[in-house]
């Protein structure tokens, strides 16, 4: 399994946190309230062991927003929240604008969550691409709900997973989620190579 040195780990965490900062700023503007996002932990896992690394969530009922990315770095990025919590996120965020109050997760709310996911995933990807100088294109977000095995399909089996724990804070509430990047081993090697290049480019 891929292991980063402490310096590589800290650098990647820092880059992603910068990206999440800009995602939080965008969400704050949208919901007209302060939203903060922190990434307390990142780790690598094999696809088979993904369940063991999502210990903050009930992996049998997840809400996900998935985007592909390609270019110099390719793979898929997936934002995961607990199925029930995801509705809470949308309600918390939309409450300021529309005051929705029913029990159904409608198309409207799925689309709303897709947009939140899109902002968070794009922010992470852009931070990595811009800082580490990758040329990356991302696709549109797709919303899905269900078991982890349904969300991470057999097509993904050959891939390695970079897992970020994401804490979303709004109105003194914290909602825990994960961003996982599915990449093949070549992409992971390339990512590490770019991290090293970036570290070396920083003047002592």
């Amino acid at each position: 399994m891929t292991i980063l040195t402490d310096l590589q780990h800290d650098t990647l965490t820092e880059i992603i946190n910068i990206g999440m900062g800009s995602a939080a700023a965008a969400l704050s503007t949208m919901v007209k309230d302060e939203v903060s996002i922190s990434v307390p932990d990142i780790s690598f896992s094999s696809i088979d062991a993904i369940k063991d690394n999502l210990n903050e969530l009930d992996t049998s009922n997840l809400a996900s927003v998935r985007q592909g990315f390609d270019g110099e770095l390719s793979g898929d990025a997936i934002l995961l929240f607990s199925g029930d919590k995801s509705l809470e996120i949308v309600r918390m965020l939309l409450a300021n604008t529309l005051g929705i109050n029913d029990n159904d997760f409608s198309d409207f709310e799925q689309e709303a969550l897709s947009e939140i996911g899109n902002i968070i995933l794009n922010a992470g990807l852009s931070a990595i691409a811009n800082t580490l100088r990758f040329d990356v294109n991302s696709s549109l977000p797709i919303y899905k709900q269900g078991d982890i095995d349904r969300l991470v399909t057999s097509d993904d089996k050959s891939q390695t997973v970079l897992i970020l724990r994401v804490d979303l804070n709004l109105e003194n509430k914290q909602i825990k989620g994960y961003v996982v990047y599915l990449m093949d081993i070549l992409a992971i090697d390339q990512l590490i190579e770019h991290i090293d290049r970036y570290i070396n480019s920083i003047p002592n």
Binding site: M30, T97, E109, S126, L140
Partner: peptide, 23 residues
């Protein structure tokens, strides 16, 4: 606006964006 930002991100960062009717 968010639309202008999304267009800018698409051109400069290659990211696709969804602007839902929710927001």
């Amino acid at each position: 606006s968010r639309l202008e930002q999304a267009i800018d991100d698409a051109i400069n960062n290659g990211t696709s964006a969804l602007l839902s009717s929710a927001w």
